[in-house]
Design a protein around this nucleic acid. Structure first.
Lengths: 140, 140
DNA sequence: TGCAAGTTTGAGACTTAATATCAGTGATAT
DNA sequence: ATATCACTGATATTAAGTCTCAAACTTGCA
């Protein structure tokens, strides 16, 4: 948790960006939510803690975090993008196609695959996202 | 190719939707493009063949094809959604984070994984999408 | 400390993708 | 042949996200 905050914060500073009060607030709120929030939801929550922070700043902070590779926007076509934390360069989740519930999971034996892909397509792999669609136990 | 058109067409009819002239035109154009087109791009191309087909119909056809599971919208945050064909319930590609080039690939030994996930989370898996991000050979 | 250069910020206007509406058309079943 | 229901498309609307620009911060350096 706190660890996550540090990871994101470090990613900011290590890439030459400034870790301002506004950005700290955004990061802390995002981590507190465990990811899977939209920019506007996040902006609202951030303002409960830091009322002066504007919508634009939230968008821009998310953009920066995306650029340095620690989060990623996820789009399900149901409204706004949601942002997820990229643990060690990857993120995996199940999405129920009926109720749109999202379940994160960790297991993924793709290290092998991504390496082979890199060779085959002359591609320098940095991260990956696996989305599994189906019906959750309540929806089938 | 032609096979793809049949797959999509059948998915339409088998789910109780009507395979109209407009929908045929959309499907044929989508397959001819090999996927990875936005709705508006597709609408434009469809009109080169079937000028009467409206934008709205293209959106709705894509929605139906999505519902029956044969295509899926992909969002890279760079403008409009792109639609990809789901081969046997899955799609995999590499995306260059610099030039946004997309390379589709087939290999994915995930049958095993999805099965285990289904058990673990009591989830009925239907399809999946694997996105691998990195730098293509021209961009690094 | 004080200054200059470069970042970051936020209110508001703007762009663009996508959805809702609704009357009209076309397909299907009996 | 007709009644029913699905589909269509022009237009209006909504909503997500971006652009702009002046003001406010940070930082490094003298």
């Amino acid at each position: 948790m706190t660890n996550e905050v540090e990871t994101l914060s470090n990613a900011i500073t290590e890439n030459g960006y400034r870790l301002t009060a506004a950005r700290k607030a955004v990061i802390e709120t995002l981590v507190a939510c465990g990811g899977h929030v939209s920019a506007d939801q996040l902006a609202k929550r951030v303002r409960e803690v830091a009322p002066q922070v504007g919508r634009m700043t939230v968008f821009r902070t998310l953009e920066v975090l995306g650029k340095v590779g620690v989060i990623r926007p996820i789009y399900q076509g149901t409204g706004a993008a949601h942002y997820v934390l990229m643990h060690k360069g990857s993120h995996h989740h199940l999405i129920c196609i009926r109720c749109h519930q999202v379940i994160d999971f960790d297991q993924c034996e793709s290290g092998d695959l991504t390496q082979r892909l890199g060779q085959k397509f002359d591609f320098q792999v940095q991260s990956h996202l696996l989305e599994v669609y189906g019906l959750c136990k309540n929806c089938r």
